[in-house]
Computed example of a mutant assay.
Amino acid sequence: MAPSIHRQGDARLALMMGGYDAAVAAKRRQTTLGATVLIVAVVVAALVGEVDVGKFVVNLHRFGDYIVRLAHLEGGAGVLSDVGEWFWGWRRWLVMLGETLLIAYMGTLMGALGGFALCFFAARNLTGRAWVRFATKRFFEVCRTVPEMVFALIFVIAFGLGPLAGVLALAVHSTGALGKLFCEVVENIDLKPVDGVKANGGSWVEAVRFAVVPQVLSNFASYALLRFEVNVRSAAVMGFVGAGGIGQDLIEAIRKFYYSDVSALLVLIVGTVMVIDLCTERLRHALLGLRRA
């Protein structure tokens, strides 16, 4: 009997090893296929984009030269040798930076309100009518698919130069982005409180107000803060198309080759974005911590 058991064990081991080898071979084929598809996609993208590797290598030093030039004043001295001259327009720039922050704030606020008002109609677990969900989700897609700069150009043509165009552009784009995120949060709620409100004769609006909103409010606030971070960066370049903010001075300095002004404006923008990112990150973590508690 022992030899029979031994032969059965060897057969089972051979069968398991054969399955393992087959799985490894299949994984290798998948990896090879994925790598091949990636290489082909890169080559096709390079051909369509008319990428010239030789030209890139030959002109790569120009990028380094530009960065070095940003670190020097018009007279050739380093920017740190005379900080007063480097930030000669700091009063005007701070005003423009404040305008940029206000554009981002108002755009985020309006977008968050729009996404909040519509997300419940797009949620599968709250809205039974398929055409309502379909229309709301397609609206969100249109809002977030078109870049903010395109919306800004449209609103500049409609309302003229100034911050209003930037606010409206960010508001429309934020409505689409936050609406999708809010909808996903709503679709993952616990439906027992909703059923409880409806069982006691509550309307759809009352179910949303008393059973849904308390569950999702902290996540909504977290996503809105995250979107504010994104909108601050977007608002910084809205001035490129005349939509207000510090981007107007930045694009003017770039076009006129005022290198030290470009570097000073970039330092202000990057520093502001970093501070806002750190503050909103702390707020988001605090909100999520309160929700878990």
Rank of each mutant, 00 (worst) to 15 (best):
L168F: 02
W204Y: 15
I154T: 12
T272R: 06
G201A: 08
L178G: 12
H285C: 08
G245P: 07
R291C: 05
A177S: 14
F240V: 06
Y223P: 13
P163M: 02
A211V: 10
V172L: 01
A158N: 04
F257A: 14
R233I: 02
L161C: 08
I246F: 03
M274L: 15
R284I: 00
V230K: 08
Y259Q: 10
P214F: 01
S260T: 14
L288C: 07
T272P: 10
P214I: 04
L268I: 11
G289T: 06
H285K: 15
N188R: 12
R227F: 00
V186M: 11
G247W: 02
V267H: 08
G202N: 09
E229K: 07
G160C: 13
A264S: 15
L283A: 15
C183D: 10
R209W: 09
S234C: 11
A211R: 14
K192T: 13
V267G: 03
E187T: 07
F151L: 10
V185P: 03
A235P: 00
Y223N: 09
V241T: 03
I154D: 04
A169V: 11
T272C: 14
A211P: 10
R227M: 11
L161D: 04
G239I: 11
L153D: 07
L266K: 05
V213N: 03
L288H: 08
G160K: 12
N231H: 02
E252I: 14
D195Q: 15
G271Y: 00
A171T: 00
G160P: 12
G162Q: 00
A236M: 03
V156S: 02
V216S: 03
F257H: 15
E187Q: 11
G160A: 10
K192I: 12
G160M: 12
L226K: 06
A171F: 01
L178P: 12
A243L: 04
N188Y: 09
T280W: 07
S174T: 12
V275C: 08
N200F: 12
I251D: 00
L153K: 07
V270D: 04
V172W: 00
V262G: 05
G179E: 02
V194M: 10
A221S: 14
V273P: 01
V167E: 00
V267K: 08
Q248L: 09
D277M: 07
P163W: 04
G242S: 09
V150I: 15
I157W: 01
S222C: 08
L191V: 05
V150M: 02
H173W: 09
R291Q: 15
G160E: 11
L250K: 01
F210R: 03
D190T: 10
A199N: 09
A158S: 09
E252R: 15
L288D: 13
F220T: 06
A158K: 06
R255Q: 15
A211Q: 12
V186W: 08
G239H: 12
I269S: 04
G289R: 10
G242I: 05
A158E: 10
N219S: 14
R209S: 13
L181K: 00
D195P: 04
F257M: 12
L266Q: 07
G196E: 07
V156F: 01
A224P: 05
N231D: 01
Y258R: 14
L181A: 01
I276P: 00
V197A: 11
V205E: 06
